[in-house]
């Protein structure tokens, strides 16, 4: 019975995973990312527009990534260059993204999805679901095994560390936030491609769930993706009819769990030391 939930778990965890990896990159660089929701929405929007312009899901993916990246650049220009309050700016970007959709594309749109890949014993999933674990590994290696990752994490851990190496903290923060836009945009693309339909409420709070997963996973890429799998699994439990769990309880599961974890009742979370600070 539990095994029958695996396909649904993977499908629900994929968009969360992308957004959570994005959130990890940005928060590791010290920029609080409340804007994941908006970035995902711009990604989904970009995908739809791209597919409608040229009947190609790949072009859609590219435009979607550009959409996420664009909103990330807006966030970074404001928070890094102008040193604006990061949380308020994130909220603003979410409002901005929602507003642009209501202005530009308030209707539901049918679009073609990304190709699916059928593998023996595993089943058939969207290509992005297969890319997910690869991206997770790449993020892990990038963050912990390369000089780039070291610098990115240094930007998030202290405002002074990069300065002593005469490196620009701003540049590495731009890098982290840029990555978060690209990944969150991909998550948005997946959501549209998965159901072949764009609606303005398609993200439905998944950006915030991803943010919860970032915290739940203690700002580490692999743990964050595992957290997304857990959230995806919990979200699939409503498929088991005889348990009769109220939908609302299932929906609030990630939030309740995150609050418990954040309170340190299960393990201890450790955010990047200079998260949210903007002195350079």
């Amino acid at each position: 019975m539990i095994l029958s939930l695996i396909p649904s778990t993977l499908r629900k965890a994929t968009p969360l995973g992308y957004a959570a990896l994005g959130g990890t990159c940005s928060e590791r660089a010290g920029v609080v990312n409340i804007a994941l929701e908006g970035m995902m929405l711009m990604g989904a929007f970009g995908y739809t527009v791209g597919v409608q312009a040229i009947e190609s899901a790949w072009i859609g993916l590219c435009v979607g990534i550009a959409g996420g990246f664009g909103s990330a650049m807006l966030l970074s220009i404001a928070t890094i260059t102008f040193q604006s309050e990061q949380i308020v700016t994130g909220v603003a970007i979410n409002i901005l993204a929602l507003g642009s959709i209501e202005y530009l594309l308030p209707t539901s749109e049918r679009v073609v999805g990304l190709p699916e890949l059928k593998l023996p014993f595993i089943g058939h999933y969207s290509i992005l679901t297969y890319v997910m674990p690869l991206l997770m590994l790449m993020c892990h290696i990038m963050l912990y095994k390369t000089a780039w990752g070291l610098r990115l994490r240094a930007a998030g851990n202290s405002t002074e560390a990069l300065k002593t190496l005469s490196l620009s903290r701003n540049r590495w923060q731009y890098f982290g936030v840029g990555l978060s836009g690209i990944f969150a945009g991909m998550g948005g693309c997946f959501l549209v491609s998965d159901v072949n339909l764009f609606t303005k409420g398609i993200i439905a709070g998944r950006g915030y769930v991803a943010l919860a997963a970032v915290i739940f996973g203690n700002w580490r890429p692999i743990n964050c993706v595992l957290a997304c799998l857990l959230f995806g699994f919990a979200d699939s439990l409503d498929l088991i009819q005889q348990w009769n769990i109220p939908d609302q309880l299932i929906q609030s599961f990630p939030y309740i769990l995150t609050m418990i974890v954040l309170a340190g009742l299960v393990g201890k979370t450790r955010p990047p030391a200079a998260l949210g600070t903007s002195e350079n």
Binding site: Q83, V88, I93, I95, G99
Partner: peptide
């Protein structure tokens, strides 16, 4: 479409916090 006002609101906040960050900090 009323989305225009939402976009404007988002923009308004960003302008506001950027001015604050830029001048005060």
């Amino acid at each position: 479409p009323r989305g225009l006002f939402l976009v404007g609101q988002g923009l308004l906040i960003i302008v506001m916090v950027c001015m604050e960050g830029f001048v005060i900090k």
